[in-house]
Amino acid sequence: MNSAAKSKGEIAFHLLGIAAVSIALLALCALLIDIISSGYSKVSLDFITSYPSRRPANAGIAAALVGSLYLMLLTACFSLPLGVGAAVYLEEYATENKFSKLIELNIANLAGVPSIIYGILGLQLFVRYANLERSLLAGAFTMSLLILPIIIIASREAIRRVPDSIRQAAFALGATRWEMIRDQVIPAAFPGIMTGCILAFSRAIGETAPLITLGALTYIAFLPDGLLSPFGALPIQAFNWISRPQAAFHDNAAGAIIILLTVLLSMNIIAVVLRGRFQKKFAT
């Protein structure tokens, strides 16, 4: 093997890799700089606590931000137990057969379905059939459906990473399957499950398409006051402002995006911290 040629190829590949990373990072940086430079001046306590207005200077994101947070909270309440429950069933109870393989394949496919499809499903299922109107509840149900596959896949992976020897140890002590899962598997998998879930929630909080399909409000002068209350959400607010002709509204949109990114970044930081803990726990 000609080592000079080999190292040449290696250098080329190395450079190619650096170029690929740089392009991705540069695009992200450009986006961030653009948004921060135009939205920076907008971000203030006033902006966060004000309701939408016809005058760009007075308009704020209070309703949208609270709507988004409520939506996430509700979505978490529905999708977390369902998703983790499904993952536990598939990993710990289901026997490997054609049926479980089919379910597995379906879940993997569902994770790749465009979000607008979920919006259409939610519109028909929750808004129309279940008569929930364009409510916070309908939104949360739709979002839950959207992120369920992601949560199931992430939780299954976390559960699978729990060494089998731990299950055997629990069984050998006389634990029932449920005790073994509750006391050993879920606690050991918990940080991994949480990491996956928070990443799923991060995706949900940025989703716009299904909420637009559902008919979430963009001009809303009150905070949601119940499960069946109409609601707004940050990405929709930003989308609405950016599509207005007045340039001043575009800065508002940038401001809303900065807030959204801040929420998202905080969620991701929590995920990273949890993952760090998980790895520490299983070290040695």
Binding site: Q168, A169, F282
Partner: peptide, 17 residues
């Protein structure tokens, strides 16, 4: 109750984390 009566120690130590 069987496994309470019959304890087991495995080849590789497997303490709970």
């Amino acid at each position: 109750s069987l496994r309470k009566k019959v304890g087991m120690v495995f080849q590789r130590s497997n303490p709970f984390p």
